[in-house]
């Protein structure tokens, strides 16, 4: 499959594209996609993925395709997971069909198991929203402190941090006031 869009209408020509928005905290943020597709190809033969390194390169090649938004090729799990912009999606970006993805994978030596394909709609806004608020996966203590020590001292350290940030901001405002006086003819 040509790595560019299969859509005849190019992005450049579509000057009247409507916008899609994600909402957060009462504000709207323009995003390029709304409902897209998430497809997972499972039970890929390890011999076709070859090894970890070739799996990584396949991931890179999938990412080169404009309609592919995210791709993960896991040699360990023997699966390929793709977020892509499907034909028919209501946006102005390059699109692809599932068949085109399968065809691309075939050219790369991957024969997908039709029975193990899982595809569903995916709201891009979930991906977008999560990216801005990822969860904490670890809480390592500062150097030379144990986890237990850190657990006890953390509230106090965070409180002092907040105070220090406030003082820093006040110092900046003081500096800013002085600067404004010195440069009032230019501001």
């Amino acid at each position: 499959m040509d790595r560019r869009s299969t859509e005849k209408k190019s992005v450049e020509e579509d000057a009247s594209a409507s916008y899609i928005y994600a909402e957060h905290d009462g504000k709207k943020y323009r995003v390029p996609y709304g409902i897209i597709k998430h497809v997972v190809f499972r039970n890929i033969k390890k011999s076709e993925l070859v090894d970890l390194q070739h799996a990584a390169r396949l991931q890179y090649r999938l990412l080169l395709m404009e309609p592919v938004i995210k791709a993960t090729v896991s040699f360990v799990k023997s699966e390929i997971s793709i977020l892509y912009n499907p034909v028919g999606a209501d946006n102005s970006k390059p699109k692809a069909s599932l068949e085109e993805l399968k065809e691309f994978l075939k050219k790369e030596g991957i024969n997908v198991d039709e029975k193990s394909i899982e595809e569903k709609d995916f709201d891009y806004r979930h991906f977008y929203t999560y990216a801005f608020s990822p969860k904490e996966v670890r809480d390592r203590p500062p150097y030379t402190y144990t986890q237990e020590e850190w657990r006890k001292m953390k509230p106090e350290v965070m409180r002092k941090k907040g105070e220090s940030a406030k003082k820093k901001w006040e110092r900046f405002l003081e500096w800013q006031k002085k600067y404004e006086e010195e440069h009032k003819d230019k501001l």
């Binding site: 990584a56 991931q59 990822p134 996966v137």
Partner: peptide, 24 residues
């Protein structure tokens, strides 16, 4: 160093550098 406690991707970077965003 100690890295990032809240990376975007909770993956171990099997396909680094193509898993970026950052990861664990």
């Amino acid at each position: 160093g100690r890295g990032i406690a809240n990376p975007n991707y909770q993956v171990l970077g099997e396909n680094c550098p193509f898993d970026c965003g950052l990861c664990e």
